[in-house]
Design a protein around this nucleic acid. Sequence first.
DNA 1: ATAATTCCTACTGTGTCAATAGGTATTTGA
DNA 2: TCAAATACCTATTGACACAGTAGGAATTAT
Lengths: 150, 150
Amino acid sequence: MRISTRVEFGIVALADIAIYSENGSTVSSADISQRQNISQKYLEQILVILRQAGFIRGQKGSRGGYTLTRPAGKISFQDILNALDNTILADTYISEDDKNENDLRCSVNSCVWDKLNSYMREFTSNMTLADFIDHHKSSSESDEALMYYI
Amino acid sequence: MRISTRVEFGIVALADIAIYSENGSTVSSADISQRQNISQKYLEQILVILRQAGFIRGQKGSRGGYTLTRPAGKISFQDILNALDNTILADTYISEDDKNENDLRCSVNSCVWDKLNSYMREFTSNMTLADFIDHHKSSSESDEALMYYI
DNA sequence: ATAATTCCTACTGTGTCAATAGGTATTTGA
DNA sequence: TCAAATACCTATTGACACAGTAGGAATTAT
């Protein structure tokens, strides 16, 4: 599945904010840009999307930055994906004109695409940003252990 | 999930050929174009892809047309999708440059995208063109029954 | 005041999709 | 043998989204 950088960077940015604002401080776009190696200007546009979607709050001015508006455990992947790319979890569409004339096109929907969409929706609705961060932390711990033994 | 018309028409064309060549005759692009309401010229390009992928064989000349090269039960959806769009079932890619610097991007792969890809691959590898056609036929039968009672 | 920050808008290059178009090569049937 | 039908090939086009780049305006802490 091809995932756009907008989606990829958006998820990474949210996770970065969640992790580095745990002590109560804000996280600036410059910080994220450096840590995650993402063009700051491009990142800023993505952060606007995430703010408009209600995941983060931005504070302007010196010492400003971003914080989550709610706990990472209350932000589902489904919501994130829908905010960053409204096609990934969208139904496969057939125009009304074509619908009556031709049922093979409708059949492939009910037989394949709808089922795949349902699965993806269920999977992403049951996974939160917190789950992702936990997964990340535990996997980077084992990376460190690996490094140690090498 | 956004599916291109190339993929949609390709699947429909294959199913159409499978259905209308059951008596041993060939199926022309004009036939498919009319039945499925698809631009013939565009369809021809898609049929070239399907031929190059080995699903169908084309016979030139008068009374020519297309037939399947093997039974519909031996053509998996996975193969069809890979032929028509090599991104749908592809791994989500992270450049080697980014891989070491940044493990958040890798984590989202192992945590989300790889799992979705695995599911989609399993689902599509277990479904053949014959399954799809069976599903279509049985659902259009019930449509007729519905029509009758109305 | 000044520096740091978010926020807003415009522009650009690149690539893919979804055709449209016109033609060539081949085969069958009359 | 000729004409029609068919697959097959290649070029072009318009629209659109992506992936940034760029410049600055608004706001805030120190």
